[in-house]
Design a protein around this nucleic acid. Structure first.
Lengths: 199, 199
DNA sequence: AATAATTATTGACCGCGGTCATTTTAGATG
DNA sequence: CATCTAAAATGACCGCGGTCAATAATTATT
């Protein structure tokens, strides 16, 4: 029969999360070692894995929470009326997503939930981001020949492309913001239909 | 002083690559263990790492080679004249890129070279793919208000988005091809410019 | 309060990628 | 052929994520 969750459990989990946050703030995400976290939290290694499926699951929690904070900021903004405003609005979130190569790679891996069962925090933020984006794009001075939902997916695709290229050895020339703005202008404000010959 | 490369070296590397290929064909990419590869190749573990920086570097080689094969096929095709033809042309490559979650993640990680110094085989294929794509899109019945190079980047971004969503727990509904076709129609054949009010 | 049934914690242990001081081998030199 | 030297190969070792049978702590039952 389902017994209630023990307070001990909540306390231990909180201590683990706090310890992890400390380690990250001191050394960054990539440098985090599970052993270091459990040592700080004063628990055994096995306890960690009783609370988180694996190290990535902890990262999913922590990184997802940070992303959610940036989405809160975004949702407080008035709908942007230009590509430049969109880019500006997205910048804080994007900056965080690219703060470390390790973080970006992990976000990509978890952007669509790994297993069918558990959709994690990061996957949720992508969902949320898509919805906010669709809301924005349904009202503004942007193209209307495709659905706002599709426009939003495109914005996500281009944002990821721009972020990925900012890590890229080739194409390290153009700054991230300029590239994203170029993409979004072409995506959200197309000028003509067909090629040389009219349609 | 620079002595010539010993034949022993080439032979050992070839044996390692062959052994790795065998293991993969039997158990898939994700299941590959370095220890198993060196055992089959009849060399010590350390030897492996004298030939490949790490396990990922081996994967970069092998996966990059496979991708290059598919690109050869693509380059033999006549320039497609519709979105459906583009999707059809890209399918074999895409299918391989998504044959395993592990493979897709690794490709993403290596799509823009990891370190500034060494651009690996996978990164090269992305470059090549972009160029082939730009060539295709500069002639056909596609939009001409942005450069073929930019169009090509968009196709890559949408292809990656479509592949990623095919692994996604949410959005596992629409089949991969249909989604990509929808993206590319919106990207390559936009109908109007602004929203409700004309521009 | 004593006992039973669950749940949480522990830490020795494992798998596997990667390292490095040491040894072996290939090939140039006298 | 003997000798010397740079390159290649070796395998014991390490770091670190993750497991699991055993133990401790908590809650329900009498």
């Amino acid at each position: 029969m389902n017994r209630p969750i023990q307070q001990r459990t909540l306390k231990t989990r909180a201590r683990l999360l706090e310890a992890a946050t400390e380690v990250i703030s001191e050394a960054g995400y990539e440098a985090l070692r599970v052993e270091q976290v459990v040592q700080r939290a004063g628990v055994a290694k096995g306890t960690f894995f009783a609370h988180f499926r694996d190290k990535d699951a902890l990262m999913d929690q922590l990184i997802g929470a940070r992303m959610d904070g940036f989405l809160d900021q975004i949702d407080r903004l008035p709908p942007p009326q230009s590509v430049d405003e969109i880019v500006a609005a997205l910048m804080p979130l994007m900056s965080f997503m690219t703060c470390e190569r390790y973080v970006f790679d992990l976000i990509l891996r978890y952007s669509g939930a790994a297993a069918r069962a558990d959709i994690g925090p990061i996957a949720m933020t992508f969902e949320r981001h898509g919805q906010s984006m669709a809301r924005w794009l349904s009202g503004g001075p942007f193209r209307s020949d495709v659905s706002p939902a599709l426009l939003a997916e495109g914005v996500q695709a281009f944002a990821i492309q721009a972020m990925a290229l900012s890590f890229c050895a080739l194409h390290a020339d153009a700054p991230f913001q300029a590239r994203l703005a170029e993409y979004l202008r072409a995506w959200l404000l197309p000028v003509s239909g067909g090629a040389g010959s009219g349609r």
